[in-house]
């Protein structure tokens, strides 16, 4: 609601002060990112390590193991922007949403296995403060808040390829956690033709700030009644004791750097009025 009010304020303000440029767009851009998934990768490796003796005791072995989770990726970015420019300066509110998912499967020789599906929905609400560098370029610095919904879905795989979350297997579950943090970066807009500009934005999204930090926060958890309480949290290290009080839980504070390319629409009121005058 606050966001809506802020955006509407900018629209009304933009109209009322007759800003030179009014920006506004709802576009789908492309984002390349690098995310620090070290803890997630450690968890996956520890699962493999913990399973080796278990399989060996049952005369089983790994037949297929996916590579670890990747730090790099490409995804789409839904971006909404609204703002204004006046006297060489611009102020734009930006809301950006991205969704990513990675799946890693492990299979062993009797046909069974486990599948880890990592999902993220990240939202950024940003303020871009900029100036018109040249006739065609806007430069800006950006800062704001990131809101992240993360979840790990851990399935058991049967020989017939069924993936199930049945509670018969303690490691099955839908583990979730919500994090917030601060984001900052910079960008450039290239106003290559009237009404349309291309935008490139670099953003560093740091999870946590102040008292909200990894050491104090809880980890990914699944509070379903069907789960044994000791398996409420998704383990950071499968080779270490797992219990609700052990502190052995994956806390998804995964900082991300990203570059987003998108289009933005704007209205140059000066140019329009000049055309009218002609």
């Amino acid at each position: 609601m606050k966001t809506l009010a802020t955006v509407l304020f900018f629209v009304v303000a933009g109209h009322s002060v007759l800003a030179q440029n009014i920006y506004g767009s709802l576009t789908y851009g492309a984002m390349g990112y690098q995310c620090d998934y070290t803890d997630l990768q450690t968890s996956y490796s520890s699962y493999l390590e913990s399973m080796e003796p278990v399989l060996a005791n049952n005369n089983l072995y790994f037949t297929d193991v996916d590579d670890n989770f990747s730090n790099l990726g490409l995804t789409g970015a839904l971006t909404f922007q609204v703002g204004m420019g006046q006297n060489g300066y611009s102020l734009v509110f930006t809301a950006m949403s991205t969704k990513t998912a990675q799946t890693r499967d492990v299979r062993w020789s009797n046909g069974f296995g486990r599948s880890f599906v990592w999902k993220e929905t990240r939202r950024e609400t940003l303020f871009d403060f900029g100036f018109y560098g040249t006739k065609r370029f806007d430069f800006y610095g950006t800062f704001g808040v990131n809101w992240n919904w993360t979840r790990m879905v851990s399935y058991y795989i049967y020989p017939d390829e069924s993936r199930t979350l049945t509670h018969e297997f303690a490691n099955n579950g839908v583990y979730k956690h919500y994090t917030v943090g601060l984001s900052f970066g910079a960008g450039v807009r290239y106003r290559f033709k009237n009404f349309v500009a291309l935008e490139a934005r670099y953003l560093f999204s740091k999870i946590g700030f102040g008292i909200i930090n990894k050491e104090e926060d809880f980890g990914l958890s699944d509070a379903a009644i069907v789960k044994h309480p000791d398996y409420t949290y998704f383990p950071q290290d499968y080779t270490e004791p797992i219990s609700v009080t052990s502190g052995n839980e994956l806390v998804p504070y995964f900082n991300r750097q990203s570059v987003t390319l998108s289009a933005i629409f704007y209205i140059n009121r000066d140019r329009i009025s000049k055309k009218r005058d002609k």
């Binding site: 199930t164 509670h167 379903a224 009644i225 069907v226 789960k227």
Partner: peptide, 24 residues
């Protein structure tokens, strides 16, 4: 019930009990 995108749980009366449906 607890209904999530990946899993529907018909909850039992005690911890560890219930019926789980995996959403395909």
């Amino acid at each position: 019930v607890s209904a999530q995108k990946e899993r529907i749980v018909f909850e039992g009366n005690t911890v560890g009990s219930g019926t789980v449906y995996t959403v395909e």
